[in-house]
Design a protein around this nucleic acid. Sequence first.
DNA 1: TGCCAATACTCTCCAATGGAAAGTAGGCAC
DNA 2: GTGCCTACTTTCCATTGGAGAGTATTGGCA
Lengths: 127, 127
Amino acid sequence: MQNYSAAADPAPDPRVEMLVNDLIGRVADKWTLLVLEELEEHGTCRFTRLAQLVPGISQKMLTQTLRAMERDGLVRRTVYPVVPPKVEYALTDLGHSLGEAFCGVWHWAEAHLAAVEAARSAFDAGT
Amino acid sequence: MQNYSAAADPAPDPRVEMLVNDLIGRVADKWTLLVLEELEEHGTCRFTRLAQLVPGISQKMLTQTLRAMERDGLVRRTVYPVVPPKVEYALTDLGHSLGEAFCGVWHWAEAHLAAVEAARSAFDAGT
DNA sequence: TGCCAATACTCTCCAATGGAAAGTAGGCAC
DNA sequence: GTGCCTACTTTCCATTGGAGAGTATTGGCA
């Protein structure tokens, strides 16, 4: 386990490490994760549907998050030149692969929900 | 909300889904992830060492992140009543399990770094 | 003719968050 | 006493995020 860190990694390239940290910092965003989840679950979606699907997101953040994800190659944005406007968002292969990588985190959240809540109660009571 | 009837959905309970989303929202934080990584990699650390290890974190955010992680049962905080003060942070079993869950994400970041950068260049050039 | 509905943003205002740096506590060598 | 060490804590200010109104487009309706 943990072969991302490494006893067997004598000369970790600092540039790569920095870039990976940077990428993590951008991808590990609440809204990115939630949008990714909904797109995984529901497939291709339009803007307003996503806004309804992601709990509590504002239009501004949805636009911003989708733009960033598009720029990073995670989602594909398809505009239909009709009136009223129609824009569809879908995960790219890269987006799907990230969704699969995050799969473990969702499972963890489901599995350890009770443990986290217990820890919180204990902490709040103890201090 | 929607009819979650047809799909072979593993978690049709809306309460659980909401709690999981909430938990994801809290755990999917840039600093939490970075601190988790360093703690996984270096094991037990003191405050200032962690501050040096995590690139770009401020003391305030480090304190805040560590407190939140402690509350969620991810790290264990050990205070030695000596002078000058000495406080050690270590991952709990729960923290380790989360680290393993995020392992896939780090692998993804390493593996798809080039793809993301290519997508970014293409996006920036195309617009 | 002129107004409205529908959609995907975009803008504005304001509150909350995050970073930089200085301050705090409290024994101990001097 | 004075300064030092460490782990915070506080203060100030720039940036971010949320709520809600505004914008652009054009077919349909009165």
